[in-house]
Design a protein around this nucleic acid. Sequence first.
DNA 1: AAACAAACCAACCGCGTCAGG
DNA 2: ACCTGACGCGGTTGGTTTGTT
Length: 316
Amino acid sequence: MGRPPCCDKVGVKKGPWTPEEDIILVSYIQEHGPGNWRSVPTNTGLLRCSKSCRLRWTNYLRPGIKRGNFSDHEEKMIIHLQALLGNRWAAIASYLPQRTDNDIKNYWNTHLKKKLKKLQTGLDDNTRDGFSGSQQISKGQWERRLQTDIHMARQALCEALSLENPNNLSDLKPSNGCYSYMSTTQTSTYASSTENISRLLKGWMKNSPKSSKTTSSEITDQNFSNNGAQTSPDDFEILLFDFESPTPDASQSVSPDEAVNFSQDISHFQDESKPILGSEAPLSLLEKWLFDEGVAQGQEEDLIEASLGGTAAELF
DNA sequence: AAACAAACCAACCGCGTCAGG
DNA sequence: ACCTGACGCGGTTGGTTTGTT
């Protein structure tokens, strides 16, 4: 007995979203807030299934999304977090609030994998003549990562259990992809952000000579391109992101949820956390790369602090 | 200029989890 | 305790764009 589809296949539209659909969805969410996706198609008249609506919103329409080029910092952050967390894209995305898990996943699969493969190839060339060296590195890496994970988990549990700062955890991490829209501090921002989207969409509708055929990604492009419309990406970010911080706080620690995950990672260390390309040795090269470049940028130290829970100093 | 290949990314699918009845 | 529905996540697909021959 298979699981029934989330919606009737009959009459459900698939494929790229049109600007009109985006507008409908955005205006609905503006009014009712994200959530209760099941009712969205019914209430909006969209011929989409609830999943599709949610995905469209979380991956594309929601305010606070940064699209396009990943910065060097983001790239390193992803690599490091992937090494720590494995392919848990949602968890990784929670450290990069401006990026969606889908975006990060795509970027990993299309760019970073190759990059790391290259790095590994380089490493293989360097270590071709001796196995014992890499074995030593491997053991050291493993122990260090294990200690790091244990420390992070412990730290997170301590923070979770100490009720000194009850707001901390929810502030640190967008809860389950909900991005704290409903939090007291961000309600107004959410509303105005959605208004911005609506405004941009309306602007596009006005300017576009061929609205019916244009894909929704073109919307963004046209609205965001300097020649096409009123708003540049930066402008858009200014409009939308008055709440956001550029990077996760260096003092950020993990949530209890993450702590549990880390504990699990410890017990399933070899297979669960899926270290880069299945071996420890590339990580050392990778870390070297990350750390070396980090020296040049203070930000990278934040990254290391953030992802290693500030234990790097102890460990080295 | 055309054909083909590679890269990219939005969207879909199916499974796992969890809350409510 | 069990069942069901809703949601979230990760893997995968397929259409589009870009680059190469």
